Simulated assay, not measured.
Amino acid sequence: MIVIEEVGPTATVQDLGRPGWFDSGVGPAGAADRGALRLANRLVGNPEHDAGIEVLLGGLVVRAEERTLVAVTGARAPATVDGTPVGHAGVLYLNAGQVLRLGFAQAGLRAYLGVRGGIDIAPVLGSRSYDTLSGIGPPPLRAGTRLPTGPPPLNWPNIDQAPQPGLPDLMEVRALLGPRDDWFTDPAALFTGHWTVGRDTDRVGARLERADGPALQQACATELPTEGVALGSVQVPPGGQPVVFLADHPITGGYPVIAVVLDADIDLFAQARPGQRIRFRCAGTV
């Protein structure tokens, strides 16, 4: 059992999501940076899909009620245990009563706390993730929340730390052109110059602003019938500022999707702060 003593901007329980419910109007949700959650779980010896805590920027303080094993990954939020600094992406042993405190990350956007045994709350539609768009799943964490952990797995971790590269000043992201690239006068403009992440970014999507290069212009004013959209879809409203759909994206949309970010590169957007420079690289056609 762990106890939440303080929360920064926001913190939610997330696993790898609830796929398979699109026909019921429910998106998958799950960790925005899936790789960071998987790494946190591997460090503490959990299956990769176990639930952990996703922390926006930092500010989380937790207290262990019993001896447990934790790991912090994702954004590099400085961490201390009872005031003593500890490393990033490493295995941390907490005795009963010890307090883990996360400061605010200077780079990256989302940190992940993995706890040995996983956060063992009741799943909703097969997942313990909170979906910020629909409100499905456990509510955002608050001070005083007590989170049970599951039984520890049999295999202990065999590494103490997993060094992680920093984020580049210019983040290169691969995308497949289409399926609605023919709705634009010059779809290749997406891959010309670079973009910046705007202030309007959350778990639903990251809105991009043109830093340099040509604008995205639709070829006609015809309305597109509502159709399904996937994780990583680059949807372009009439204003020409694309939105990259992230973990809590809607399952349908009415604006044309000019491209789809490769699944392997979606996690990069989970760590992209407002002001982060983005360059798209064409990886083919949908």
Rank of each mutant, 00 (worst) to 15 (best):
A230N: 11
H88T: 05
P139L: 07
G114D: 05
P152Q: 14
P123A: 05
L190K: 06
V229C: 07
R38D: 11
G58T: 09
A215P: 04
L113S: 11
L43S: 04
Q14N: 01
P274D: 12
V115W: 00
Y93I: 15
G27M: 03
A189V: 03
G108W: 07
F22G: 11
Q164R: 14
L100T: 14
V286T: 14
D248V: 01
V204N: 10
R38W: 07
G178L: 00
G35Y: 01
A79Y: 04
P85G: 05
S129K: 08
L154D: 04
Y255F: 15
R203C: 00
A272E: 10
F22K: 01
A75I: 03
T185A: 01
D169A: 15
E227V: 12
A122T: 15
G144R: 02
D212I: 04
N95H: 15
R38Q: 15
V204R: 07
Q164T: 14
V86Q: 13
S134R: 01
L154K: 14
E66C: 06
T192W: 08
L246T: 02
V204G: 02
L170W: 07
A221K: 03
L69G: 09
S129D: 09
D131F: 10
N46E: 00
N95R: 10
I119G: 07
A206M: 02
L37W: 06
R281Q: 04
F104G: 13
N155M: 11
P123Q: 05
Y93C: 11
R279H: 13
A111P: 03
R128Q: 04
L167I: 13
L268W: 07
V99H: 04
D160R: 13
P152V: 09
A77G: 06
